[in-house]
């Protein structure tokens, strides 16, 4: 594998909040078109890790590189990198005062400096991608959680990012709405979007992920293709974790 394929490089990220060490040296490379899924117990730093990548949280140590350019310590240029690193949140965080269309348009107009007609065209295209073009004129309060999340994916896509970070994108949704969001994400993965996904959806991880990173206590405890982590007897920790979730579900 050629180094030019690496779009995102994460190097030895450390982060503490007070006395709690949330991340204790996390490193990985992401190749273009790859989907990496992060799995693990709550509080093991998965979401913090994603936020360290686009510097919404500033790591204590470690570096992040996008396409060979350093994202960490980039000062005001961080706004440039953030255009290229999309993010989708657990609670959608759609702009509540704007329609679905305007949600997608806003950064095109204000950040990319696109003209009105062009931004509208682009926004409608992205809404179509996620099956939300019929809802373009609706406000967030008028959308279901699944619809809102699809709009927020369109909003991230509109910036033409190199990579999209998904921070538990379906954790606030019921199973049916989860399915409609996962369908959209699977389609993106098939179309070659580079994605980092923090999720508890094992089915999604198994069917889409090129690699699963199992995180525990602020480090990547196991790492590999989903089949390997699930079936190879040398790997036990993720299987233990999944076993624990499943038994909880049986209760």
């Amino acid at each position: 594998m050629n180094d030019n394929d690496i779009v995102l490089k994460v190097e030895e990220i450390y982060k503490s909040f007070g006395d709690t060490e949330v991340l204790r040296g996390v490193s990985f490379d992401v190749r273009r078109g790859e989907t990496k899924v992060f799995i693990g117990p709550s509080g093991t730093g998965k979401s913090t890790l994603l936020r360290c990548i686009n510097q919404l949280t500033i790591p204590d140590r470690g570096r992040v590189w996008l396409d060979g350019e350093e994202v960490t310590n980039s000062g005001a240029r961080i706004n440039y990198f953030r255009q290229k690193i999309g993010m989708v949140f657990q609670n959608f965080f759609l702009f509540d005062h704007l329609t679905a269309l305007k949600n997608v348009e806003l950064a095109l107009l204000k950040v990319k400096g696109m003209g009105k007609a062009e931004a509208r065209e682009k926004a409608l295209t992205e809404l179509r991608q996620v099956g939300m073009e019929d809802w373009a004129d609706h406000y967030p309060a008028e959308l279901s959680g699944g619809q809102a999340q699809r709009v927020s994916i369109a909003r991230a896509l509109a910036m033409d990012p190199d990579v999209i970070l998904f921070d538990e994108p379906t954790s606030a949704l019921d199973p049916e709405l989860t399915r409609e969001v996962l369908e959209v994400m699977k389609k993106l993965a098939r179309n070659g979007m580079t994605m980092l996904v923090v999720t508890h959806e094992m089915g999604f991880a198994c069917s889409v992920a090129n690699e699963v990173l199992f995180m525990e206590n602020g480090v990547v405890a196991e790492q590999g293709p989903p089949d390997l982590l699930l079936n190879d007897p040398r790997f036990t920790r993720m299987k233990d974790f999944i076993g624990r979730i499943d038994s909880r579900m049986d209760d």
Binding site: L56, Y80, F93, L94, F95, A107, V111, R155, M159
Partner: peptide, 17 residues
Amino acid sequence: GEGQMIAARSLGMSRLT
């Protein structure tokens, strides 16, 4: 909600924007 600012910044908006 604080998420509004976080979402805006994640899209590359400056704080002022």
